[in-house]
Design a protein around this nucleic acid. Structure first.
Lengths: 207, 207
DNA sequence: CCATTGGCAGTACGATCGTATTGCATCGAT
DNA sequence: ATCGATGCAATACGATCGTACTGCCAATGG
């Protein structure tokens, strides 16, 4: 056997470069040549690791999914109990607007692909459904108010977090404002939830 | 003066074609030639009405904003009182996921432009802030619960609606599920709000 | 020690991009 | 009636795209 390199790692490296370009210039800016330059490799090498541009984009979408998942998992690493975990998950999503702009923007850019390409669509759906299930379970385990339907409330919380992330991304509100909103909402549906010291009782927002 | 044509109308026609392409293939699929074909005009005509591709995209973003605004305004045309208006606004946003996929997808595709291009960013911000102000005013006029901060709650409601619209777009939940969630949330912050007959008291969601 | 195989760079090429330029028909003003 | 400006189509052109192909280097097994 000749020289051995970590095939998967190289692919991920290049895909990450593609995601950076995607976040900077949108999907339109993702070019084999540009990706090669961004990744610091030759154009031929990109061809060596990806069958074509479609393959590259497909792989980038998978890496993107992993990136966001890693981001969220890291946020909940040392959480105390389901309620705290739930809170951290939501805050992590909101904070994508400032700490992980690349995955968030790339995710938006890939959205149009998700409605056209069945495989990407399935990827989005699978990820979204998994998050929803986990969120609903977390919510149910957090001692919610009696009138709370975990399934519907999970959709509400995730929708809220996603929407707030976009608002934060565009600068419509600050991360702390968004965090306060999430906490305020959580406090309403989790009567006995542990209120953290850094969250004011009533969120004040500029504008 | 020679032949007279409605300059603005022609520009909007072509920009609409660009938005359709944008929704179908993302910003990457927006090409002068493709736009011309989609609009049913010659490539030269597109050049005649737009100084360049950047001008076309800029104009498309403006048309997009107008399109969404028109959609929402139409939804609140014959609303009864501020609470009902607020409800219709939020539902209109949620329903973008099914009734106005083109503007919604195009909006996502343009998001990356909004962080790079200051003019597009300002356009997004201006529109978002205006909607937020109107929403907050509507909320304040709807007789909210005493612990509700209209500014923060408006951000929450708009974030929720936007996030749910994406969920609907991807098929994670149905429009009726999303509508029920919005209604459920509204009922919590508006104690004396008029509950419409078609909204169940507790939203049930599949999955 | 050398033949083989995979990692990698470079070049070639047809298609398509955005833009500049040209040509012509048409309508309004003089 | 003619002249100039405008609407619009068509072509030309350099740049760049995605892909195919070729060639070299390095490392490993026989």
């Amino acid at each position: 056997m000749p020289k051995q390199v970590d095939h998967a790692a190289r692919r991920e490296e290049i895909a990450q470069a593609a995601l950076r370009l995607c976040a900077r210039d949108g999907l339109a800016g993702v070019t084999i040549g540009q990706v090669a330059q961004e990744a610091g490799v030759s154009k031929g090498l990109v061809q060596h690791y990806f069958a074509g541009k479609a393959d590259l984009l497909r792989a980038s979408a998978h890496v993107l999914r992993g990136e966001i998942e890693r981001h969220v998992r890291e946020a909940v690493r040392d959480a105390h109990g389901p309620a705290d975990t739930l809170r951290r998950v939501l805050l992590a999503i909101v904070e994508l607007g400032v700490t992980a702009v690349v995955p968030l923007l790339a995710g938006h850019a890939f959205l149009s692909m998700a409605v056209a390409d069945p495989e990407i669509h399935a990827l989005y759906r699978a990820g979204g459904d998994a998050v929803h299930r986990e969120t609903a379970a977390l919510l149910a385990a957090s001692g919610p108010a009696p009138d709370v339907d975990p399934g519907a409330e999970a959709h509400a919380l995730l929708g809220l977090a996603r929407g707030l992330a976009d608002g934060v991304l565009l600068g419509e509100l600050g991360v702390d404002d968004a965090a306060a909103i999430v906490d305020h909402h959580l406090r309403r549906i989790l009567p006995g939830a542990p209120t953290r010291s850094d969250t004011p009782s009533s969120p004040q927002v500029s504008g």
